[in-house]
């Protein structure tokens, strides 16, 4: 297998790239952990409204240390603040926003994404204590479900695959994947390459991908600032 190139996007850079596709005024849910970084890179002049499953629309940055109010937390159980125009609601309303198709974008992490849009991101198998949270709801609710992820695992195995081998979070739900090497859309059961790092050849990228990358149109250079 081809070695992953030394030049690749960092997690913050992947988050930056994903943030460029979020429109002004969009209602957005960011998964816990890595996807939360996307909020830091909203382009100038755009303001999305961030949704937290536990019952907030319009939460803002973390408070400074010592200023936390532990009754004001996000789904990751971290203290947050409120932006002007924020709202609280109970859990069934929160997931009505999710399942009712009211969110514009959900961005999640992934263990594996299949060319069919299937996502595996909640369980690494039968060992340990299972926990699912809201991932299975989010993948069926938002108008657009995107994934941000390393292109390959720490062991160098492709994370973009023909079929997921791990337990599924949802079937046919992901429409775009932002990786450390490329931006890939999922259309009609196949991976469509939209952007790639200029430093990597198509053939090398293909060898790091577990399913065929299609190029029906131009492939742009994936250019992200140093962050």
């Amino acid at each position: 297998m081809t070695q992953e190139p030394t030049e690749k996007l960092s997690n913050v850079q992947i988050a930056w790239r994903a943030a460029q596709d979020i429109a002004d005024g969009a209602y957005v849910n960011l998964g816990i952990g890595f996807p939360e970084m996307v909020a830091r890179f909203q382009p100038e002049g755009r303001a999305a409204v961030f949704h937290s499953e536990n019952g907030i629309l319009g939460f803002g940055k973390a408070p400074s240390e010592g200023q936390e109010d532990w009754d004001l937390i996000n789904a990751g159980k971290k203290a947050v603040t409120l932006n002007p125009g924020a709202a609280f609601f109970h859990h069934a309303d929160s997931f009505a926003m999710v399942r009712g198709g009211h969110l514009d974008v959900a961005i999640l992490g992934a263990y594996e994404v299949a060319q069919t849009g299937d996502l595996a991101n909640w369980s690494t198998g039968p060992t340990g204590v299972p926990a699912v949270g809201g991932a299975m709801d989010l993948v069926h609710g938002a108008k657009r479900v995107a994934v941000i992820t390393e292109h390959v695992t720490k062991k160098g195995q492709p994370k973009l695959v023909e079929r997921c081998s791990l337990p599924l979070t949802g079937v046919g739900c992901v429409t775009r994947v932002y990786t450390s090497l490329a931006v890939v859309d999922i259309e009609e059961g196949r991976f469509v390459l939209r952007e790639k790092l200029p430093a990597i050849s198509f053939d090398d990228l293909q060898s790091l991908t577990g399913a065929t990358l299609h190029c029906p149109g131009p492939v742009a250079d994936l250019i992200v600032p140093e962050l």
Binding site: E53, A92, S94, F95, V129, G133, G134, D137
Partner: peptide, 22 residues
Amino acid sequence: KYQAGEIALELVPQGTLAERIR
């Protein structure tokens, strides 16, 4: 308790949990 087999777990997606209650 879970690993000792002393407690049962029914895992429910969060939105399904909320909607089942509602």
